[in-house]
Design a protein around this nucleic acid. Structure first.
Lengths: 219, 219, 219, 219
DNA sequence: GATGAATGAGGGTTCATTCAT
DNA sequence: TATGAATGAACCCTCATTCAT
């Protein structure tokens, strides 16, 4: 035939490609690597400005490999958010079942927030929802349905219980459970924008908030 | 996930719409039209996904005209944010000089927030800072330097004064004045993401917050 | 801002860019240049294998310029075919109105075919319809509706007339007017595939065909 | 214009479908399955738009398996065409040796064309040669050398014979034997493009053609 | 031999930016 | 100044081909 044959350079096997794990395991590992790389890139650049080329390079795979695991850039983004947030749901429901004085419960929630969200990549995913949500209504909906509405439900339950036991002076927070987590959100936003000017001690912030809500001495 | 449908702008201002006025006035009017259009687009699409073509069409000018007023897309974005936020600074300093009981001051701040920020395009600019700030460090810095740090300074002054007058039970909020505005931020974020699932009454939210901070009866 | 500014090399004005013609004229000329280049490339490579890069280079424009004139590759292909074939329609209708002995009419049709189709780029467009039609049903439909069915209509009219005047021995060709143009089609296909092995004299071929249909001496 | 919807193949042959048989037989069966699948796909999509992935799926083999039987996509295409057309050659030579009145011979050729080409996948292969030939000169050459030139040779012999016996009025068809097969080609092309608008009865078409060539009553 | 995950070059399309008018 | 046609770099996605298993 006439067409000049395309010369394709032979790729060199990467050194780690021979090390253990079954086929399926390696595939799953690759998927995880891509998700991890995607989180880094999306968190740093935002959805639109992230290049799949960079994700691939960071994950140590070829560009095309991404498409073996995710339909397109949007699906990658979506799957990333879901895979990171899904474990949260279970965690939240466990806490909600506890029956303890409100203040100690709140303390535990703060702890969980700090160690399981603020101190992890989940913080970045929450930020991504905040920043990209307006352009991804389905994602915002997922987050609302799977996470937020449940958290709020659970909190309302706890708070009503506490209110009935007389542990709450005001029913304000019962109407707006968002007020409980507001400082957490603020901390997440602050950390991405202003930490280099004025670092924020989240744990202290949230305990100060609890002091305000419950009075200082009640701990 | 279906991406949010890109909102297609219709041209709003025709070039003739600024009848009369000198050359300089017409130029200024064009600049304002571009900024207004840019706000619409950036707020709806985010920085990266906004096309200058759309901004131009919405502003009723040619694409090239934008470059007569702004060096590039980034400069347009930054000038926009600055032009919207700058008036805030003065406003804040005025409030800070008032000498009134803390609670009534807080009420006024809430009012100002609701009417001058939440009820206006400024809300969108704040959201833009939150969403685009990580990619625009200069902008975050500007916002911190020109707005946030001053607000916090002023608040600290007010709060210290109040504390000394015995109007504050706890010094928690003195250490973290962010707690005062946290519900405002949460409201801004909520409105962009979840209002269609569960609308939020900002004013009520913020008054509930004040009730929590000061006790219900103190108004 | 943090992002490294993309350095854009300045394009050099091409020497011919200053020569006459109004703006609209130049735009139209560019459009024509793109269509001409597209015909060359599509004819040589087929639709799928044609690269818009090559079309642009051949037309002497930048790749993006194509998109100022055509929505996408498919629209370019479609517009190309239509722009080349549309003039044919009028031509055909003119011929059909003639009232002359069938044989001389047939001779004229042969002449028109040879000089207006076979001897021009229209030949390539017909070939494109044949080769790409199965993948572009809309195009085949356009061709059938705008060209073929009209040609066949007109021919049927002429032939019926001739038949009634006793100029036709058999009504076979009346039922299958395709038989009149079959040699033309064969010539077009032959020329693209086998001319280098055995060139074909189209005019002679078609006259031989007429001899078969009408008998040799009737000219 | 809407592109023709890509037809998605369903796997047809499962690997186990060739029960029994030696290793070599199984290998040959796989090869045939691939060729059959390739014919389906190439005929439906054309060379460039056909994906080997689809061929493999349709053949019920893995993608890599194709490369065990064919050097690359081009070789698959060419082997396909050759394997389908080669049997034709023998068939044609058999016919050419017959010594019968021209008209009855022509009738037989029509029959063979309709039943052995038009009614089979060979029609698709002929179309493929027409549509892809310009991009595959080697293939066009093969077709010319192995099929066409022989057919024409054989026909010339038959026709000269008939001419000498006085069965032919004009020597026109002797100079252009292509005229004999022209309607066949037209039918093949028509069927792929316009059958949905106006179906064509090939057999009737070709008999009408014979009527034209030999006069109606001579059958 | 057979598999199918992985590769990465290639191409269609977009859009910030420029510049002749 | 204002325009908007033109530019071309960049980026998402596809798919022929390879190769470890």
């Amino acid at each position: 035939m006439t067409k000049a044959p395309r010369i394709r350079p032979k790729p060199q096997a990467s050194p780690q490609s021979t090390r253990g794990g079954g086929r399926a395991q390696k595939t799953a590992a690759r998927r995880e690597a891509i998700l991890a790389a995607a989180l880094d890139e999306f968190a740093a650049q935002g959805f639109a400005a992230t290049r799949l080329d960079d994700v691939a390079r960071r994950a140590g795979v070829a560009k095309g490999t991404i498409y073996l695991h995710f339909r397109d850039k949007e699906a990658l983004f979506q799957d990333l958010v879901r895979s990171v947030l899904s474990p949260l749901v279970g965690m939240l429901e466990t806490i909600a079942q506890t029956d303890a004085p409100l203040r100690s419960l709140a303390e535990r929630i703060v702890e969980v927030f700090v160690s399981e969200i603020y101190g992890t990549r989940r913080k970045d995913v929450i930020r991504l929802i905040i920043t990209e949500g307006p352009r991804f209504p389905k994602l915002a909906e997922f987050y609302y349905r799977e996470v937020l509405s449940r958290v709020i439900q659970a909190m309302r339950g706890l708070l009503r219980h506490a209110f009935e036991r007389g542990e709450l002076e005001s029913e304000a927070i019962l109407r707006f459970p968002q007020l409980l987590v507001a400082p957490g959100l603020v901390a997440i936003i602050w950390s991405g924008l202003f930490d280099r000017f004025e670092p924020l001690d989240v744990r202290a912030l949230m305990h100060a908030h609890l002091d305000l809500l419950f009075g200082k001495g009640t701990r």
